[in-house]
Amino acid sequence: MSEFREDEAVVEGTEEFLPPASAGDTEKVEIVEEEAKEGVEEFLPPQTGADDAATEPAAETVEAEAATVDYEALVAERTADLQRVHAEYANYKKRVDRDRGLARQAGIEAVMTDMMPVLDAIQLAQQHDDLAEGSRMIIDELRKVTTKHGLVTFGEVGEEFNPVRHEALMQLPLDEPVQVVTISQVIQPGYELHGRVIRPARVAVANP
Results as ranks from 00 to 15, higher is better:
residue 1 M to Q: 05
residue 1 M to F: 09
residue 2 S to C: 06
residue 3 E to S: 04
residue 3 E to L: 05
residue 8 E to K: 06
residue 9 A to M: 06
residue 13 G to S: 08
residue 13 G to N: 08
residue 13 G to R: 12
residue 14 T to M: 11
residue 15 E to P: 07
residue 16 E to I: 08
residue 16 E to D: 10
residue 19 P to R: 11
residue 19 P to C: 11
residue 22 S to I: 08
residue 22 S to K: 09
residue 23 A to T: 12
residue 26 T to H: 13
residue 29 V to Y: 00
residue 29 V to W: 02
residue 29 V to M: 01
residue 34 E to I: 10
residue 36 A to Q: 00
residue 36 A to M: 00
residue 37 K to V: 10
residue 38 E to P: 09
residue 38 E to G: 12
residue 40 V to D: 01
residue 41 E to R: 15
residue 45 P to A: 15
residue 45 P to F: 14
residue 48 T to G: 09
residue 49 G to A: 14
residue 51 D to T: 14
residue 53 A to M: 11
residue 55 T to R: 11
residue 55 T to M: 11
residue 56 E to I: 05
residue 56 E to C: 04
residue 56 E to K: 05
residue 57 P to T: 10
residue 57 P to E: 07
residue 58 A to S: 15
residue 58 A to F: 14
residue 58 A to I: 12
residue 59 A to H: 05
residue 60 E to S: 07
residue 62 V to Q: 08
residue 65 E to F: 13
residue 66 A to M: 06
residue 67 A to G: 08
residue 68 T to I: 12
residue 72 E to L: 12
residue 72 E to W: 13
residue 72 E to V: 14
residue 73 A to T: 14
residue 76 A to H: 15
residue 76 A to S: 10
residue 76 A to Q: 13
residue 76 A to P: 10
residue 77 E to M: 15
residue 77 E to N: 13
residue 78 R to F: 15
residue 79 T to K: 14
residue 81 D to K: 14
residue 81 D to F: 10
residue 81 D to A: 15
residue 86 H to C: 15
residue 87 A to L: 12
residue 87 A to N: 13
residue 87 A to G: 14
residue 89 Y to G: 09
residue 90 A to F: 11
residue 94 K to H: 11
residue 94 K to F: 09
residue 99 D to P: 05
residue 103 A to Y: 09
residue 105 Q to I: 12
residue 105 Q to V: 10
residue 106 A to Q: 15
residue 106 A to N: 15
residue 107 G to E: 08
residue 107 G to H: 11
residue 109 E to N: 09
residue 111 V to A: 03
residue 113 T to P: 02
residue 114 D to S: 10
residue 115 M to K: 06
residue 117 P to V: 02
residue 118 V to L: 03
residue 120 D to S: 02
residue 121 A to T: 03
residue 125 A to H: 02
residue 127 Q to P: 00
residue 128 H to C: 04
residue 129 D to V: 05
residue 129 D to L: 04
residue 130 D to H: 11
residue 132 A to H: 13
residue 134 G to S: 09
residue 135 S to A: 05
residue 136 R to D: 03
residue 137 M to V: 08
residue 138 I to L: 01
residue 139 I to E: 01
residue 141 E to A: 07
residue 141 E to P: 01
residue 141 E to W: 05
residue 142 L to V: 04
residue 142 L to W: 00
residue 143 R to P: 00
residue 145 V to R: 04
residue 145 V to D: 02
residue 148 K to L: 13
residue 149 H to N: 11
residue 150 G to F: 07
residue 150 G to C: 08
residue 151 L to E: 03
residue 152 V to Q: 06
residue 152 V to G: 06
residue 162 N to K: 04
residue 162 N to D: 05
residue 163 P to K: 08
residue 165 R to A: 03
residue 166 H to I: 04
residue 167 E to I: 07
residue 168 A to Q: 06
residue 169 L to D: 07
residue 171 Q to K: 13
residue 174 L to Y: 00
residue 177 P to H: 12
residue 177 P to Y: 14
residue 177 P to G: 13
residue 177 P to I: 09
residue 179 Q to W: 12
residue 179 Q to H: 12
residue 179 Q to N: 14
residue 180 V to A: 07
residue 180 V to E: 09
residue 182 T to E: 00
residue 182 T to F: 00
residue 184 S to V: 02
residue 186 V to R: 00
residue 187 I to P: 00
residue 188 Q to D: 02
residue 189 P to Q: 03
residue 189 P to K: 05
residue 191 Y to I: 08
residue 194 H to G: 07
residue 201 A to V: 01
residue 201 A to Q: 00
residue 203 V to M: 01
residue 204 A to D: 00
residue 204 A to L: 02
residue 206 A to M: 03
residue 208 P to G: 03
